[in-house]
Design a protein around this nucleic acid. Structure first.
Length: 209
DNA sequence: ATATCGATTATCT
DNA sequence: GATAATCGATATG
């Protein structure tokens, strides 16, 4: 089922208090929200349909599990900031920090349903936006959505997404998913059994199955 | 449809 | 030196 945003509908930026909670609470609330990138006159928008929570302390799969380093520094800062890392020599992945004060939790954005500007996303991804199959290829997967939105460590890491000046932010338009499914996280070897992946049930833009 | 594999580099041991 | 929160291509059923 699709869930596009109507042109008439107003969207509102999500504030820092939203992210100042346990990532397991934030995650389901993040589903159905919009990720927005302002690029000059254009605006890229995708609806968040899949995320994973990383808890920091006690979560061996979390980048922050072994303590503070140059790479994961933003996770130890205030909530609502972008943590962008580079992986497999190829891909950037976008996380949003949660909680403040030594609880370095975050949420990995894993898949979006493209809302607009589709042409711009397709250009960034270097694929044609003609078929439905290609539409899925735009933003289904953390590396894909980062490429579609032009997200890089250099450009976005450490950015405060809740600041009104930020060109990258999360917004809400009143949409709420009918049902949320919770599963094991994807692509990790440590702490792989924990049920910390949240998806909008039945949404076709969720990665994998 | 699922399975396997190569790419390519920042980061950490 | 090994690893990694992935992707796209190729092979096979």
């Amino acid at each position: 089922m699709k869930s596009g945003v109507e042109n008439s509908k107003q969207i509102r930026r999500v504030g820092a208090e939203f992210f100042d909670r346990d990532p397991r609470r934030v995650s389901p609330d993040l589903l159905g929200k919009l990720l927005v990138r302002r690029q000059g006159r254009k605006r890229l928008i995708g609806r968040i349909v899949e995320v994973e929570a990383y808890l920091g302390t006690g979560d061996l799969a979390a980048h922050a599990a072994a303590g503070r380093t140059a790479r994961n520094d933003v996770l130890f800062g205030p909530p609502g900031h972008a943590y962008v890392y580079f992986i497999y020599g190829n891909h950037y992945c976008l996380n949003i920090s949660c909680l403040r004060d030594g609880m370095p939790g975050c949420i990995l954005i894993r898949a979006l349903e493209p809302v607009g500007d589709i042409e711009e996303m397709a250009r960034a991804r270097r694929v044609s936006a003609q078929s439905a199959g290609d539409l899925r290829k735009l933003t289904s997967g953390p590396g894909r959505l980062a490429q579609a939105f032009g997200i890089t460590r250099e450009r976005d890491n450490g950015k405060n997404l809740t600041n009104s000046a930020s060109d990258l932010f999360v917004a809400e338009d009143g949409f709420h998913p009918r049902r949320v499914s919770i599963t094991k996280r994807v692509g990790i070897t440590k702490a792989a059994e924990m049920p910390l992946r949240y998806v909008i049930a039945g949404n076709e833009f969720v990665s994998h199955g």
